[in-house]
């Protein structure tokens, strides 16, 4: 894994925090929807993952997703926020992180624009997170599991579009900074 600069690490840490806060904020509204669908979740996590996907596509280093997942699980443990997963909660953060890392590696020659890759990444990470929770805690089967995954995928796609927008807005900030470092480089 290539070294990640301190600036990117700080950005990733902020995204981890934002992810946890977003999940907390969206939880009441998400629960309202999932209760009516008779499924135990699948929406809130996508809002958490959208920040991880944004950071991963800005940083573009393999391992960034898993690193953020690890940090998020650490924060969740410290806040006593592990939910029903208990001691297995880190898995629920690491697996989506791994999926994000694999999606970042998707080659550009696949013909997909980066926006599309971000949306697919967010959707896949969201479904991976839901399936992990299902294996560890819920044990859903049949139509309920299908609905649970379908809901996770829908919210993942919606959050993916938001992540793509965020990436578009944030990329110039980091690109400008890179140019400045290059300009300042020879003088120092």
């Amino acid at each position: 894994m290539k070294r990640i600069s301190l600036k990117y690490l700080i950005f990733m840490a902020v995204c981890c925090d934002l992810g946890i806060i977003a999940k907390k904020l969206i939880a009441p509204a998400a629960n309202l929807i999932t209760d009516n669908l008779h499924i135990p979740g699948g929406i809130g996590t996508s809002f958490s993952l959208l920040f991880l996907v944004t950071a991963a596509f800005i940083v573009k280093r393999f391992g960034a997703g898993m690193l953020m997942g690890l940090v998020q699980s650490g924060i969740a443990f410290l806040l006593g926020n592990v939910g029903s997963m208990g001691a297995l909660a880190p898995l629920g953060y690491l697996i989506p992180g791994l999926v994000i890392d694999l999606c970042v590696l998707l080659p550009e020659r696949t013909g997909m624009s980066e926006d599309v890759r971000i949306v697919i990444c967010c959707a896949l990470a969201s479904v991976a997170s839901s399936l992990t929770a299902n294996v560890i805690v819920f044990g859903l089967v049949g139509p309920v599991l299908a609905l649970y995954c379908c809901t996770a995928c829908i919210s993942g796609i919606v959050c993916g579009f938001i992540a793509a927008l965020l990436c578009k807005r944030l990329r110039p900030v980091f690109a400008n900074d890179r140019q400045n470092v290059k300009k300042e480089g020879p003088e120092t």
């Binding site: 008779h38 997909m112 624009s113 926006d115 139509p143 309920v144 609905l147 379908c150 829908i154 796609i157």
Partner: peptide
């Protein structure tokens, strides 16, 4: 794959979720 394709997939998933919600309910 284009954004339009993603929107079509999203629409299909919403319909599928609605059908599954009725089945589960």
């Amino acid at each position: 794959m284009k954004k339009k394709t993603l929107l079509i997939i999203l629409a299909v998933l919403v319909v599928l979720a609605a059908v599954l919600a009725v089945v589960v309910s």
